[in-house]
Structure formats: C-alpha cells, structure tokens
Amino acid sequence: MWDSIYFFIMVPMVYIAFATLVIGIAFKFTIIFISPTIKGTIAVFPKGSVPKLCAVRDSFFMPSAFMKDKPFWVVIIAFHAAFLLLIIGHLELIREFAVIQVIPHEVFLGAGWVGIVLIVTTIYFLFRRFKTPWREISVPEDFIILLLLFLTFIFGSHMSLASRYGIAGFDIQVSEYREYLSSLFTTSPHVSRGILASPHYVIVALHVFFANLFMMMFPFSKMIHSVFMFAAQFIKRK
C-alpha cells in the first residue's frame, strides 16, 4: 500500500499539482484581464524618472521595506534570493543548463546554504507572527503556509546536505533525482531505481508531497503576491 501512496505522490500528484499551479495562475490572470480598469490613476508621487523601471526596482528590492524595517528587509531579501536560487537549483535537477553553469558549481547549487537560509528565514517569519502586533493581523492561512514552506525546506535541505556531505548514509545522488525529474518532463514518468531502493525514499516522498501542496496552494493563496506584485507596483507609479 505504501508503495502505491509513494508512487501517487511522486508521479500523479506532481502532475496534478503542476497543472493546478499553471491553470490556477492562468485563471487568476484571466479574472484580472476581464476586470475593468479604472479611469484615472491612483499613483503616488514621486513616480520616478522611469516609472516602469522604478516599479521593477520596487518589486525586486523593496525599498519601502528597507526604509521602514531594515532587519526585516534583510530577511525578506535573503528569503527571496534563496528562493530564486532554489528554483534554479531545481531546474538543474531536471537537466544540465550550460547557462547556469557559467559559474561552475556542483549541483545542487549553494552547497547547502540555500536550504539553510530558507529554513532560518521561514522560522523568522513564523516566529514573528507569534508576536504583537503581527499576531493580531495574522490569519490561519499565514501560519499554515509558513509551516508548509518550513516542512518542504527542511526535507529538501536534508536531501541536499545529506547527499553532498554523506550524512547518515544518505545514498541518493543527483543523477537519481535527474532521472526521476526528467522522466516527468518527458512523459515517461518513473521513480528512479536509486530512489526506490533507498531507505531514505520516505524523505524524498515527503519533500515532494509538501512541494506538491505548495504548488497547488500557490495561485489561491497570498503567495500569488510574487506574480501580482509587479502589476501593483506599476499602478503605484503609473
């Protein structure tokens, strides 16, 4: 029975999650584009010399957060930078990308630091919500998403660190992940023999399970801010 559950998580659920992510974002965009625009502008001044560029800068570097709370800004930037590296790292787990290897590195990139930064910053975000006034403005969604991210990161980080440094006899190598993930993309899905045979299969399955939940929740939760942020910043400058 467990084999079937693991297989469901590792293959059909990944497709379901990915489809939910893509269709969900497309649905959100459709809703936005059929919604009426406003007649004038609700921008605030100063708009900046090149408003569109300023909107992009605001989205990536969040100067308003820097102005208001510098330590928090550092955590936000660290989290999002690490998340970007995380996505790049996962792309390299599908296949080799010469462009990413411009700076030669061992896959998974970051030597384990990407996961550690994400775990630490997620814990910070979570614990911050236990404190007034953030506790009062938080809703269950905020805690659940942070917990979900924490669980995804902790298992992923374990896989990365244990594999790289040979901790606890971890025996799943990058080539095994690459075989599995690339098979998903080439519509011949299978879980590689190395993962199936490993006693650490449960760790991989849990990581994939939480990542699947993340993808499914993404379009329908506040995580959509990463997509809509640019548009909102542009309205502020338009």
Partner: peptide
C-alpha cells in the same frame, strides 16, 4: 476592478504598514 483585485489578493500581512497610519498613532488599535 483590476487594482481592487490585486490589492485584495496580494497582501501578505507583513505588517510593515501597521503603525504608518496617523489614526493608528492616535488610537493604537488593530
């Protein structure tokens, strides 16, 4: 409308705005 949908969807409740309101400064209630 579009801005309304953005604003309703993308707030993360980070709380950076919390004390920026002058009304809140006068009456510090959520």
């Amino acid at each position: 409308n579009r801005p309304m949908r953005y604003y309703l969807d993308l707030c993360t409740r980070c709380g950076l705005c919390y004390d920026t309101c002058h009304v809140y400064q006068g009456i510090p209630k959520k």
